[in-house]
Design a protein around this nucleic acid. Structure first.
Lengths: 116, 116
DNA sequence: CCAACGTTTCAACAATTTTTGAAACAATAG
DNA sequence: CTATTGTTTCAAAAATTGTTGAAACGTTGG
């Protein structure tokens, strides 16, 4: 197997690690990768990141987030759905209002980002 | 200012925090947001995440990453450039080979992801 | 019941990101 | 110098993501 030419400076270390197969086995499994990627995607937009931080200060209805950002409802709704699908936020209904707030996962993540 | 209707359950806490203006002031500044978003974008692809982890095990030439992933050179090169632009990896030339490895920032990030 | 309000959904469109394959480049070997 | 090898760059095409405005939905108040 593993019959590629690679420079000496990495060959030895590489073979000790079991070559391609060895390295690939030590990689995080697909589920972990997909979960993390979904979170990373959710965080990869400036406004979504700000919304996440705003919600870490307190739960908010959509109208508040709309007022804060100047976004249209439909736009905010889209971004909230991305955050929701990644498991970082969830919502509860209160009368006419939908109140968004961080999940435990979301809270942990914000703390974690703050130490970064 | 702040003349929007918001539900009672959040109004009080919201006003204590200084309303919209107060919340917005406590948000991370634009530079921090942009930096973090650039890293999040780099991590928001499964193969880039795997490459990052692979490089955390040892430096590798592009040909090794190509062999590991089955990607075309040009494709791998593109993804490496995304990782490079976000400051997570860098490269050194060794003869004909380009060896990619994690920056300090990249190493710190991988450790940080592992605790997640 | 009806009207108003806060919100989501949808489809068309725009913008951005990713993939592809060919061509270019830089370093080495002959 | 030429040929080869490892890699990047580029432009065109494909895929994905984000935006927009209108319509629909669910809840409340009259």
């Amino acid at each position: 197997m593993d019959e590629i030419e690679i420079p000496d400076s990495i060959r030895c270390e590489f073979e000790e690690k079991g070559g391609i197969a060895g390295i690939m086995e030590s990689l995080p499994d697909d589920r972990k990768v997909e979960d993390f990627v979904s979170v990373a995607r959710a965080l990869s937009d400036p406004m979504r990141l700000r919304v996440l931080f705003a919600l870490s200060m307190q739960p908010m209805c959509v109208c508040l987030l709309v007022a804060m950002t100047g976004y249209a409802y439909s736009k905010m709704s889209y971004h909230l759905s991305v955050l929701k699908e990644s498991g970082l936020v969830c919502s509860r209904q209160e009368g006419n209002y939908l109140i968004y707030y961080l999940t435990d996962h979301g809270k942990k993540l914000v703390e974690w980002i703050e130490t970064f």
